[in-house]
């Protein structure tokens, strides 16, 4: 992250779908650089041989019978959407 520049931060913001002004990008850049330095204890640590731990219990995902267990909540879920039409979520036109 130390070598990161403003264009990298702008790229990350696009990936994360976050609009950011030039001033905000400068703030993020400063934060990225400071944070990169802060986490060096981990990133510079010679621990490549350690098995990564993604989950506290190293669990396997439990399986369940393939049965419908949830009630149909379609109306309830559409009711909290910003814009709907005829049972669908509405977004700006995607295909011309």
């Amino acid at each position: 992250m130390e070598q990161i520049d403003r264009e990298d931060v702008a790229h990350v913001a696009r990936l994360a779908r976050l609009a950011a002004s030039d001033e905000e990008l400068d703030g993020y850049l400063e934060h990225f650089r400071r944070l990169a330095e802060f986490v060096e204890d981990v990133t510079d640590s010679p621990i490549e041989d350690v098995e990564p731990m993604a989950h506290p219990r190293d669990l396997y995902q439990r399986q369940r019978p393939d049965e419908v267990t949830e009630p149909d909540g379609r109306e309830d879920f559409l009711a909290v959407a910003p814009q709907t039409d005829d049972g669908y979520f509405l977004v700006p036109k995607v295909i011309e």
């Binding site: 990350v12 994360a16 993020y28 990225f32 990133t43 621990i47 350690v50 098995e51 731990m53």
Partner: peptide
């Protein structure tokens, strides 16, 4: 969100997220 996106992005995943998961084990 931005830092997390960066830590998971191509080219940086191993250096950040991967390393952090190894540290987590220790």
């Amino acid at each position: 969100i931005l830092v997390g996106t960066y830590a998971l992005s191509t080219g940086y995943y191993d250096a950040y997220y991967g390393k952090a998961m190894r540290a987590r084990r220790l």
